[in-house]
Design a protein around this nucleic acid. Structure first.
Length: 717
DNA sequence: TACTATTTAATTTTT
DNA sequence: TTAAATAGTA
């Protein structure tokens, strides 16, 4: 093969990275600077020029999509399949290791992966069974706590609970939860990583084996690694391993789920003399957009320091639109998309980006009204659909009778007379004797079930046994087909003649074809059903179908990372929404919001629209907001403000409504007021008028309260 | 046991 | 506003 095909398409910095000698390298790759290309070409270079076998290379990514793309591009460039190259997500690779060394990792051979939904369900049940109040010990928060500990590599014993009752209880829940998981052979996402890391530490000979094999470890999106992931990589590379890390500290937007940008700094300490290469030439955006993005990110303090530049032209100024409210904003944006399409462009080239999912609603409404096809990213994934999870629950029970989550899910689905009462008894007995629900049900919960419940329960148990038996020797897709029919799921959904029932039945059929087309990874050496179930847990599948239709793209700023569009709208640029109010008070949180803004801005190739609304309906009430501070961080020279057109159908009544909504003369947002009992405060919001008017006041001492104007007797200050 | 009414809380998300 | 979880009723 001709080496020039590997290095010719590269610029100097890219080439330096790709052809670097075999030593640790950190590539700081700005947005749109060709980082995937560098990774792909680096692998090709190692194989073609340095004569490294693909067998000795591991490439780690965060998403399945990125992993698939990387493998595809490497194979295309090398013009040969590289089946023995390990490319995968952290979770996928950890899973593979744990399957291969289940016993050494202290896991049962048939362990199964639970997703975060299952994890939350388990915690909900656990908290109840411990007799704890689920408001104080909210399952969601416990889940967050446990995952955070695991992300930090902490087991219950590692956590100091002295003088902290709350912490002690959290750890107690963590401990019980983990005991349940271990007993039932269930592994959550964070556990995959932690176990894999512990495997290295516990079994040096296994570690040594992989250290010898994977001399080259390449990591994508390095700024998103959490503590365990970093530790895992650090241990794997040891003294001899050659790490090639690619990341961008300015695009670190997952701090809230454990990502540590600091890992990029840590690299320099752990690998003294690491070769650092910056990719600063951007191939995506106009200079106007790029300069604006640079100006925004410059307001952050903790950076590795990098300045993107482009040879591209100046392009159009960034357009700023101050909307009256969120509907006006949506109308404006959709009108611009219409213009864009009328000029002969594709709808798919236009993306509407927003901070939070709830914002998509208005856009959807207007797009639907205008009959413009659109696609919302980040909806329910295929394998997350309720009916799919129902079917998977049956399949999981076939694999592992101890899977309590699955047991609970389908024990009475379709309804077969096993009600909450009966399940309570079974659950109680299981807990008291530390056995699975299946075992508990098998012994009629120690004989506590009445005749009717016992007979219904035993019918369920034999149903699962029958399914297991009947499908034993069938090929995977027939196995699935059999299960969805005979479990009664398909008849159950078909019985419901509503549109929803039909879709659900269709989705189940779709599961059969998913099983049919499923190709297990040859490296993963698992029985077909087990492989399929792992696949379903680790790869939730695409959101919506019809990928090929030309439609407008709607997504959160987070899910836009890594993508690019000729025309980008960033909507809802308002204080409190973006930056979000939950991040605004924490400097670190605010910097992360700013990075998010940087990410959004750098998605745009040629045209960028920013918009904010004076008034926005949130959670049912109208709130007022100021323009985002990020707007003020863009130099004026790059911005052109779009004046609203004078429209014939100006919604005058809305204006007057808003006017009437002022609850009393002199009450404005931000107005300082004094209350007889609560003292001094600031008006945050108000609603209604006349004697019904209510104001929300943030009191210095008493906190935020809603008060009825009529009674409150507020004194203006 | 199954269905309906009420309450509650609401960033960001991949695995 | 609205989705989801829980409480209450037939």
């Amino acid at each position: 093969m001709d080496v020039t095909t590997i290095i010719d398409p590269l610029n100097d910095a890219q080439r330096e990275a790709v052809t670097a000698p075999q030593e640790p390298v950190l590539v700081i790759a700005g947005a749109g600077s060709g980082k995937t290309r560098v990774l792909v070409h680096r692998i090709a270079w190692l194989v073609e020029v340095d004569g490294v076998s693909p067998h000795g290379i591991m490439a780690v990514t965060f998403t399945n999509k990125a992993a698939a793309e990387m493998r595809g591009r490497v194979e295309q460039l090398l013009d040969m399949p590289v089946g023995n190259l390990w490319v995968g997500t952290f979770h996928g690779l950890a899973h593979r290791l744990l399957r291969r060394h289940a016993e050494d990792a202290g896991l049962p051979k048939g362990f199964q992966i639970i997703d975060s939904q299952d994890q939350q369900r388990m915690l909900r049940r656990l908290i109840k069974s411990l007799g704890l109040d689920d408001t104080t010990w909210a399952p969601r928060e416990m889940q967050w706590f446990i995952n955070k500990q695991k992300d930090e590599g902490l087991r219950p014993d590692h956590i100091d609970t002295r003088n902290d009752h709350t912490r002690a209880m959290q750890v107690r829940i963590y401990r019980s939860y983990q005991e349940d998981c271990d007993r039932l052979g269930l592994v959550d996402f964070a556990e995959l990583l932690l176990r894999a890391h512990e495997l290295w530490l516990k079994r040096p000979e296994i570690l040594a084996h992989y250290q010898r094999r994977f001399r080259h470890v390449l990591v994508d999106e390095f700024q998103d690694t959490n503590s365990v992931q970093y530790a895992w990589l650090r241990v794997l590379t040891g003294d001899q391993g050659i790490l090639f890390a690619v990341g961008d500290d300015d695009q670190s937007i997952y701090r809230w789920r454990g990502a540590k940008v600091e890992n990029m700094f840590q690299l320099k300490k752990d690998f003294p003399g690491i070769r650092q290469i910056k990719l600063e030439q951007n191939y995506r955006s106009t200079s106007t957009i790029l300069n604006a993005a640079n100006a925004i990110i410059n307001n952050n303090s903790e950076r590795l320091g990098k300045k993107l530049w482009t040879e591209g032209n100046e392009g159009e100024p960034i357009r700023l639109y101050n909307a009256y409210n969120e509907r006006d904003e949506a109308e404006f944006i959709i009108a611009r998309i219409q213009d864009w399409v009328n000029q002969g462009n594709l709808r798919a080239e236009a993306a509407i980006l927003y901070r939070s999912n709830a914002q998509s609603r208005v856009f959807e409404e207007y797009l639907f009204k205008q009959q413009i096809p659109y696609r919302v990213y980040g909806g329910l994934r295929f394998f997350e659909r309720a009916e799919i999870k129902d079917a998977l629950a049956y399949l999981r029970l076939i694999e592992n009778r101890a899977d309590d989550t699955s047991f609970e899910r389908v024990v009475n689905l379709p309804t077969r007379g096993i009600g909450a009462r009966t399940v309570d008894v079974i659950r109680e007995y299981a807990r008291a004797n530390s056995i699975s629900l299946w075992e508990s049900a098998f012994g009629d919960a120690g004989g506590q079930l009445n005749a009717r419940a016992a007979s219904a329960t035993s019918k369920f148990l034999s149903l699962v046994e029958e399914l297991a038996h009947a499908t034993e020797s069938l090929p995977l897709h027939e196995q699935v087909d059999h299960v969805i029919e005979r479990s009664g799921l398909i008849p159950h959904f078909k019985k419901d003649h509503s549109e929803q029932g039909e879709t659900r039945a269709e989705n189940l059929e779709e599961l059969v074809s998913a099983a049919q087309t499923f190709e297990p990874d040859e490296q993963d050496d698992l029985p077909p059903l087990a492989a399929f179930l792992s696949h379903a847990a680790l790869e939730a599948g695409e959101g919506q179908a019809d990928k090929w239709e030309d439609c407008v793209q709607l997504m959160t700023l987070h899910s836009a990372k890594g993508l690019e569009f000729p025309l980008v709208f960033m909507a809802g640029m308002e204080e409190g929404l973006f930056p979000h109010k939950r991040s605004i008070d924490d400097p670190g949180g605010l910097e992360e919001e700013r990075r998010l803004c940087y990410v959004g801005t750098t998605r745009a190739m040629s045209l960028l629209y920013l918009s904010h609304a004076d008034q926005r309906r949130m959670h049912g009430t109208d709130i007022f907001a100021q323009a985002s501070r990020f707007l003020a961080e863009i130099p004026e020279e790059y911005i052109e403000e779009v004046r609203p057109k004078i429209r014939v159908r100006r919604p005058v009544y809305r204006r007057s409504n808003a006017f009437q909504e002022t609850p009393a003369d002199g009450i404005r947002l931000g107005q300082h007021v004094k209350h007889g009992k609560f003292g001094e405060g600031v008006v945050l919001n108000y609603e209604g008028s006349g004697s019904h008017a209510r104001v929300q006041v943030n009191f210095e001492a008493a906190g935020t309260k809603w008060l009825v104007m009529f009674y409150a007797n507020l004194e203006l200050m």
